[in-house]
């Protein structure tokens, strides 16, 4: 192939402008900030977005993991976030949040969503609770969360799905605009860890490009795990 690929004009979403994520609190927030600063020095930044939406959100900015450890409310909040995420992504909670989870991407994501969209995210969690009380059917709950008659919740839900799948952040408004115009939405890179944790690679029964944990010659054979084993609670990924 091509030694220096020139994708002159492919509508590659990765050539979209990278947006600045800035954060101001919490160790996870700091981790994001550090990674982001590295990113921004070399990335196209057309506008800056702040993970902290308002000072009112400050109360939400205690580090989620620290809070989750000792605070039942924080624990429940994480549980709800994972519940929402499982229904939207189709990937089991135990896979999204494995017992041994040194990278802890879920906390990065929860912090990001909480900080970016505190009000709508509260509404989404509320809707999740209400729907679940009516029926435990994930299809029903998912359809409620993605109901276009409440667009703010719907597009935030899509942002959350894309965050889990691709490890990048799409603003809900950008998704809404892209859907109406039939174009590729802008996005922002979250962190190198988010890149390697993106679920799309496992759903493709592959690995992040540039992050193989397999050995020489594996590509000659079928994948070492079945799709079901990657996303359902049982089995070996």
């Amino acid at each position: 192939m091509i030694d220096s690929v020139s994708i002159t004009d492919a509508p590659d979403p990765r050539t979209a402008t990278m947006l600045e994520l800035s954060v101001s609190d919490g160790p996870n927030a700091r981790e994001i900030l550090e990674n982001t600063m590295k990113v921004t020095r070399r990335a196209a930044l057309s506008r800056a977005i702040a993970i902290v939406g308002s000072s009112a959100a400050g109360s939400l900015l205690r580090p989620e993991s620290a809070r989750a450890a000792d605070d039942p409310a924080a624990k429940a909040r994480m549980q709800n976030f994972l519940g929402v995420s499982e229904i939207l992504t189709g990937i089991s909670q135990i896979r999204l949040s494995p017992q041994r989870d040194p990278i802890d991407i879920k906390t990065t994501y929860l912090t990001l969503v909480t900080n970016r969209r505190p009000v709508v995210f509260e509404r989404l969690l509320q809707k999740y609770g209400e729907s679940r009380a009516i029926s435990p059917d994930p299809k029903m709950i998912g359809a409620k969360l993605l109901d276009p008659s409440e667009p703010k919740v719907c597009y935030l839900a899509r942002s959350i799905m894309l965050m889990w799948y691709l490890g990048v952040w799409y603003e809900p408004e950008d998704l809404q605009l892209a859907e109406s115009t039939g174009s590729s939405p802008n996005f922002s890179v979250i962190s190198p860890a988010a890149y390697t944790q993106a679920w799309v690679w496992r759903v493709a029964q592959a690995h992040p490009m540039g992050y193989s944990e397999w050995h020489f010659g594996y590509w000659h054979e079928d994948p070492p795990f079945k799709l079901e084993n990657a996303i359902l609670p049982e089995g070996t990924p």
Binding site: P11, D12, P13, L162, Y165, Y170, A178, S183, S184, M209
Partner: peptide, 21 residues
């Protein structure tokens, strides 16, 4: 389709965001 069409990103966005680019 990574090189020509930006996958697995673009198709994932298509399926989640009701697009068919």
């Amino acid at each position: 389709w990574n090189f020509p069409a930006g996958d697995p990103y673009a198709t994932t966005v298509d399926f989640i965001n009701n697009l068919n680019i």
